[in-house]
Amino acid sequence: MNNAAFQVHSNDFEDLTAEHFDMTMKTNLYGYFNMAKAAVPHMRPGAVILNTGSITGIDGSKALVDYSLTKGGIHAFTRSLAGNLVGKGIRVNAVAPGPVWTSLRQGGRGRIQIRLKDTNETACATRRNRTRLRLSRILALFKLHHRRDPAHHRWLLARRAE
């Protein structure tokens, strides 16, 4: 499961330095790529790559230009790699959480933002995913999540196809 990430916000685009941008790309994109490259030769049919996307990769986020760029990239990487590896019987999926209370975020902003939308959307997306396990799906989770929720979706995506 690709999950490690670097995130620091910059309110002003001019404050986003080349070094900062580089660090975000290297950790969030190269990190996912490197792990996939290292793991795939050893993965058997039925194995799973699970990427951590983000709502910011779908909607964008004004103070997280670099981070949301990597997350959008991860979503495309997920769909593309899923198509590429399907012949080997390896599934590739992503979960795209909304804000979650973790130490990643607390390096950045002090306050968490809430988005409250109907979670039925999530439930429907998950159901579809279970019936189409071979396809990569991006689940956008629109609620303020406590961490158990994304984890819960992850086992749905990681477990054996039924």
Partner: peptide
């Protein structure tokens, strides 16, 4: 294998997996 599995979403996933 969980990258960033020490904390946050990674830790929750590690425990539930």
């Amino acid at each position: 294998i969980i990258t960033g599995g020490d904390s946050g979403i990674g830790r929750a996933v590690a425990v539930l997996f």
